Amino acid sequence: MPVTVTRTTITTTSSSSGLGFPTTVGSPRALTQPLGLLRLLQLISTCVAFSLVASVGAWTGAMGNWSMFTWCFCFAVTLIILIVELGGLQARFPLSWRNFPITYACYAALFCLSASIIYPTTYVQFLSHGRSRDHAIAATTFSCIACVAYATEVAWTRARPGEITGYMATVPGLLKVLETFVACVIFAFISNPYLYQHQPALEWCVAVYSICFILAAVAILLNLGDCTNMLPVPFPSFLSGLALLSVLFYATALVIWPLYQFDEKYHGQPRRSMDASCSSSHAYYVCSWDRRLAVAILTAINLLAYVADLVYSARLVFVRV
């Protein structure tokens, strides 16, 4: 059966919000539309979250700093998006407005989700009962609200079958966001070189995470900058090749990382009790064995994401006749 290659062009129009509701550009009425109200909720919930924490100084260590950064960053970017839409400045925005809002909303949902999990598990549970703990619990609640609000925006503005939209609103585009975010979390867990420098095979895994992250980030930046036509090959073909390469690379990492980290034949530690750093609970700290396990799980998650990405991307390129 012959196979022909077609190039699929994904574009968008600026007259629709992607929600089935008309948008009022450059007018205060935009805030009364469903998407505007949703972004107001995002703005308020992230503002309340970091304000509650800042008022009592309830953040310490890398995990607390990450949560605080997440809420401040999401508040600032959401405020910028609201200002751009109220001022009708989409055409002057340096990035593609077809792709930027949903890309940011997807990242913000993942960021707030991570903060909603990390902050209470690595910080709040170690606080003594009192005003600081109450503020921290309330901040976690508002972080969860923000996560739901951002996820709702992604669900509402993503591409529907047959709809003309930007690439980042499609399933492969959203998967690119997930892939890069998971890779960033992996980098956070392997920030200590001790976890992989003793074995060349583990260094290969780190190289896999880095290479695949860079390729996915390039694909996102090309879309945000409307530069996909600068590639020497059609963009859908580039996406399919990227996804295939990443699947192959991650498949090797999924085998090698657990094998060299948890198999005694390769000087691994199959049981958590064998790691002296996990002998006691420490606030703001994740022991080495837990880091190794987290990386193994995240590697499997990213492999599944890349497989789904490959399937969807291939459908943009190959059409069986």
Score class of each variant (00 low, 15 high):
Thr9Cys: 07
Ile10Asp: 00
Ser14Tyr: 01
Ser16Tyr: 04
Phe21Ala: 04
Pro28Asp: 05
Gly36Ile: 03
Leu40Asn: 14
Gln42Ile: 02
Thr46His: 09
Ala49Lys: 03
Val56Pro: 02
Ala58Lys: 05
Ala58Leu: 06
Trp59Gln: 10
Met63Gly: 01
Gly64Met: 09
Ser67Lys: 01
Phe69Gly: 09
Trp71Asn: 15
Ile80Gly: 09
Ile81Leu: 15
Ile81Ser: 15
Ile83Gln: 13
Leu86Met: 13
Leu86Ile: 04
Gly87Trp: 02
Phe93Gly: 02
Pro94Ser: 07
Ala109Lys: 09
Cys112Phe: 03
Pro120Thr: 14
His129Asn: 10
Gly130Ser: 07
Ser132Tyr: 05
Arg133Leu: 13
Asp134His: 08
His135Asp: 00
Tyr150Arg: 07
Trp156Cys: 07
Pro161Gln: 02
Glu163Asp: 11
Gly173Glu: 03
Pro193Ser: 13
Gln199Trp: 06
Gln199Leu: 05
Glu203Phe: 00
Cys212Val: 13
Leu215Trp: 06
Ala217Gln: 11
Ala219Lys: 03
Leu222Ser: 09
Ser237Gln: 14
Ser240Cys: 11
Ala243Arg: 03
Ala253Glu: 08
Ala253Tyr: 05
Phe262Val: 02
Phe262His: 07
Glu264His: 15
His267Thr: 08
Gly268Ala: 10
Arg271Val: 05
Met274Cys: 05
Arg292Tyr: 00
Ala294Phe: 09
Thr299Tyr: 00
Leu303Asn: 02
Ala305Lys: 00
Tyr306Gln: 14
Tyr312Leu: 06
Ser313Tyr: 04
Arg315Gly: 10
Val319Asn: 12
